[in-house]
Design a protein around this nucleic acid. Structure first.
Length: 139
DNA sequence: GCCAACGTTGGC
DNA sequence: GCCAACGTTGGC
């Protein structure tokens, strides 16, 4: 079981949109970055991820689960790009902001803090646990 | 709105 | 294969 973090601009696709898709989930299309794509290719069904609102909010708002492994991205004909499907699992009781993460001991190496531009990124088990506790939910 | 960081493209 | 130019992301 691995942990991840998905960034999205809430104006375009936010947590509420994701929740509305229910257990069927939604294709995480539109990623055009090799590192992010490779991270998705490494995902397995059942892996968990944080759902992060970039630009507006700049906070982790919920937990998602990978519900379909990497398949061709339907938003392009370019065969280089594929993506997973994710479904909402539960919201955090308290959103965890980027600012919170920057000052939280144990999160110094979190990709979210150090690489602002990577939209799909790995989260270590230790980081997962810390952020869950900050968010008021069980890891 | 600005700009830093980073990724990609294409000329050489 | 290097690197300058350009484009994009996303925090501020």
């Amino acid at each position: 079981m691995n942990f991840w973090l998905f960034k999205s601009e809430p104006d375009v696709w936010g947590w509420d949109h994701q929740v509305a898709k229910g257990d069927e989930g939604e294709e995480w299309h539109g990623v055009r970055n090799y590192q992010a794509r490779n991270n998705m290719r490494a995902m397995k069904v059942g892996d968990l991820g944080f759902f992060y609102h970039s630009n507006v909010g700049k906070e982790i708002v919920g937990i998602v689960e990978v519900c379909r492994e990497s398949t061709p991205d339907s938003s392009t004909d370019d065969p280089r790009w594929d993506c997973v499907w994710i479904k909402a699992v539960r919201p955090l009781r308290r959103a965890v902001t980027l600012e919170d993460c920057k000052v939280q001991p144990g999160l110094e190496k979190m990709v979210l803090v150090n690489n602002t531009r990577l939209s799909v990124q790995p989260v270590s088990p230790e980081e997962w646990e810390i952020v869950c506790r900050m968010g008021g939910v069980e890891p």
